[in-house]
C-alpha cells in the first residue's frame, strides 16, 4: 500500500548540505504495524514527515494507495492528509479552546459532504474505544497526559484514515500510561489499522510487528518479528 522508492532528502544549513535521508526504499503493506527507530539525527522524523505528506523529498517516488503523492498540489495534499492519514504527536496538540468531543471531531471541519449524524456517532464510538466516553465535555487542560493522548488518537481516527502515523506517541508519558497507549495501538492494529510509529525507545519499538532501524539517513535493519 505504501511504496517508497529511492527517497533522498537534503537540507541546506548555511553552506553545508545535510543529507537527512540518503537513499531509502520501503514497502509497507496494509495492516502492518511498523516501528521506525533510530537515534536523533538518524532521519526518522524526516521520514515520518515524508510519509505523512507534510514534507516532500528532494528525490524519489512515493506511492500511497495507488496515488503518487508528489504529483499533488498543496490543496490536494491537505485533502489527502485529512482523509488518509491520522497523526498522533508526542505533545498531543489538542486545541485548548475545545472540549474532548470537539477535538475528536476537529478533522471533520475540513472534510466535504459529511454525514453529521454518522460522524457524531463515530466520534462517540471512538471516545468509547479510547475509554473517554464520560469525559466528552472536558477541556484538554482538565485531562492527564495519557487521557490527552487518547483524545489525540481518537481524533486521528475520525476520518477513518488508511494509516496511523505516530511520532514519539509515548515520549511524554510514564511507563504505565505508555503501556495503555501501546495496548490501544495493538487493539487498533488487530482491527486491521496500518500503524507507523516513530520512536527511539526500544520497548515501544518491540511492540510493533516490524522494526526499521535507521542511522545516518539509511536503513540499518528491517526486521519482522515472529508474533507480527
Amino acid at each position: 500500500m505504501i511504496h517508497l522508492k529511492q527517497i533522498k532528502k537534503s537540507f541546506q544549513v548555511g553552506d553545508q548540505t545535510v543529507h537527512a535521508i540518503r537513499n531509502l526504499n520501503i514497502d509497507i503493506k496494509q495492516g502492518e504495524y511498523v516501528a521506525i527507530m533510530g537515534a536523533s539525527g538518524s532521519g526518522k522524523s524526516t521520514l515520518l514527515n515524508i510519509l505523512g505528506c507534510l514534507d516532500t523529498p528532494t528525490e524519489g517516488e512515493y506511492h500511497i494507495a495507488g496515488d503518487s503523492a508528489f504529483e499533488l498540489n498543496d490543496d490536494q495534499l491537505s485533502a489527502f492528509r485529512g482523509k488518509q492519514i491520522g497523526f498522533v504527536f508526542q505533545s498531543y496538540n489538542l486545541l485548548p479552546q475545545f472540549t474532548v468531543l470537539e477535538n475528536i471531531k476537529l478533522p471533520l471541519l475540513y472534510q466535504k459532504d459529511i454525514d453529521q449524524e454518522a460522524s457524531h456517532a463515530r466520534a462517540l464510538d471512538l471516545a468509547r474505544l479510547v475509554g473517554l466516553e464520560d469525559r466528552l465535555d472536558h477541556r484538554p487542560t482538565e485531562l492527564s497526559g495519557g487521557q490527552q493522548q487518547r483524545v489525540a488518537i481518537a481524533r486521528s481516527l475520525i476520518n477513518e484514515p488508511l494509516i496511523l502515523l505516530a511520532d514519539e506517541p509515548t515520549g511524554n508519558l510514564d511507563t504505565k500510561t505508555e503501556q495503555e497507549i501501546l495496548d490501544l495501538f495493538d487493539t487498533l492494529n488487530a482491527q486491521g489499522k496500518t500503524i507507523i510509529v516513530v520512536t527511539h525507545e526500544q520497548e515501544v519499538g518491540e511492540r510493533a510487528g516490524r522494526m526499521i532501524l535507521m542511522r545516518d539517513g539509511l536503513i540499518l535493519s528491517d526486521t519482522t518479528s515472529a508474533h507480527g
Binding site: 491537505s78 482523509k83 496538540n93 476537529l106 475540513y110 481524533r155
Partner: peptide, 16 residues
C-alpha cells in the same frame, strides 16, 4: 503556530 500546523496536518487547506 502549532495549532496552525496541526490543522494543516489534519486536512486544513491554506484558504481554511
Amino acid at each position: 503556530t502549532k495549532e496552525i500546523g496541526l490543522r494543516r496536518a489534519i486536512g486544513a487547506k491554506k484558504k481554511d
